[in-house]
Design a protein around this nucleic acid. Sequence first.
DNA 1: CTGAAAGCGCTAACAG
DNA 2: CTGTTAGCGCTTTCAG
Lengths: 343, 343
Amino acid sequence: MTTLKDIAEQAGVSIATVSYVLNGTRKVSDATKQKILTIVEETGYQSNILAKSLRSRKTGLIGVIVEDIQAKHSPAIIDGINRAAEERGYQIILSNLRLISKIGQEFSHISKYRDDIERALGTLNAIRADGIIYVGMHDRKIPHFAEEKEIPFVYCYCYAENGGSFVCYDDRKTSCELARRLIEAGHRRFGILAGQVESEPSQRRLEGITRALDEAGIPESSRQIVYAGWKYETARNAAKKMLSEKTRPTAVMALNDEMALGARDAAMQMRLSIPEDLSLTGFDNADEIQYVVPHIATASRPLSLMGERAVGILADQAEGRTNETINITLPCSIIEGESIGRI
Amino acid sequence: MTTLKDIAEQAGVSIATVSYVLNGTRKVSDATKQKILTIVEETGYQSNILAKSLRSRKTGLIGVIVEDIQAKHSPAIIDGINRAAEERGYQIILSNLRLISKIGQEFSHISKYRDDIERALGTLNAIRADGIIYVGMHDRKIPHFAEEKEIPFVYCYCYAENGGSFVCYDDRKTSCELARRLIEAGHRRFGILAGQVESEPSQRRLEGITRALDEAGIPESSRQIVYAGWKYETARNAAKKMLSEKTRPTAVMALNDEMALGARDAAMQMRLSIPEDLSLTGFDNADEIQYVVPHIATASRPLSLMGERAVGILADQAEGRTNETINITLPCSIIEGESIGRI
DNA sequence: CTGAAAGCGCTAACAG
DNA sequence: CTGTTAGCGCTTTCAG
């Protein structure tokens, strides 16, 4: 492996001079500069990042701790992180906590995995990463892991109890917007398929819908809320019950797409067609609904962008441009579908 | 940041002794050992991996170049890589080529992205990764990037023109097995929805099916093969045509699940029900088909395991246990569904 | 404009 | 059993 020293010897200059040329740290005569550059080219010299980092105390590494890379939203976020990182000359070092297989849906027990997190943090620390992005599995509040560490830390798709920068998306506003579309289409009786009672995204999405319904003066009695646990099966059963009542809702809002599919199949089984007999909305713009006809109206989260913005904050902090705690909430976009019918 | 030197001073020993204790490189008296360990614990000392690696010429870093992290199969493979890497004390450094957005389906033009790849390889080289895993986007032949490099290199979900270790899965055998199930169920007229003509996975899956049909003595005239380009839309159109022929196939084998969904919707539109009027199989076990009823028989690829095995090969090479080129082909598992009917 | 030299924090050969 | 010391490859003062 070629080193600075090799280049210096071949060029008949000191290693310092080679370093100056390579980093543009100081003015060097054009002659020597050219000579050095030629040799660098010929030898295919690659500076040793380890040595460089050891000296300069900057590694150009961003540690990404992801609660589960197999969570549906993770790849898009990581993609965004990767893109932005490369643009700024950083590399990604990835640590996957694999929480799904470890805790299933028991997000509240996350504290049990504090050990895993500490270990990941330890490694990233040992490697002297310039900053850390923590990508959550649900957009929810979690303990603030990096309290005592001095390394820049940004939460993405989650946020910390007591501060810390984060990037998330506005599901409250988006849900509100979806509900408004249904109201505009004339709907007055709503069925809502929510996640777990304690789930924060579920609560926020519910709040958004509630706001829209309140605005429209729709009474509580015309809102049926069922906590169907985010899943297809449970949602289908809940929807079946909901739709067999005498004053059944004319619109069902599922707080995620998987539950929307459950509601759709319940409707199909009951020979209710969408959108003629029933309007339906989802959330997340999941793969699973791309090919169902009619297309179900849903919302797309700005996942890639969230990753990019997280890197932006991190880089600003790592490079000393700011030391502020920055919180960014990005808007979603509504995906139109034919599942909303006028009444 | 605490260093070896700090610990040594506090313990009143030399830094070498501390190093010996921490690495177990040499016997040290229990007394000093305990004293050192206590101080390490108290200070929360983290050894500086950069310095360590610079000296020992091993970084404990595995570079993972993934053609696109947003490809459906990527997260599961990376998950497997991550799991196995952690077990062996390696960290993952991730480089995402983002090929999908760059070239779409034009996989043949991949050579244009040689530059991107060279850059990723360069960075990984500069960082002195102990080995590199290249995760492809399709299980296909690609140029051998690391010919001249001395660093261990393993291809995953693809393989190289002229050698190099790789891990892939057996779509030929699996397709053959799927076809046999249909034959056993009494089918004699087949429609096959393939990918692009030049696609290797498509060719292999087709070969598997051909073998099964040949074995069963089913004439070429009873096999309708259409190259429907892997996509829902094109597959639906192709299936529609296929199913309107007077001697329509009784079984349609789509070489991926997205096309199976296309075939299913074509059948629905033509009022053919599955599995009574038509049997259907897919491939890949994609998210998109998890919730369609009846469940479509398909095949699940051992993605996570492929990642794990790739790390196994890499670690064996990096740690000098072998210098052989190793190729592993893993079996898939058939996912039963109600989409296969007896005839 | 250029060079010598002092480290960054750690490992490992050599010397007790 | 323990310590001294020479680097790993690079950046960056300090001195020409």
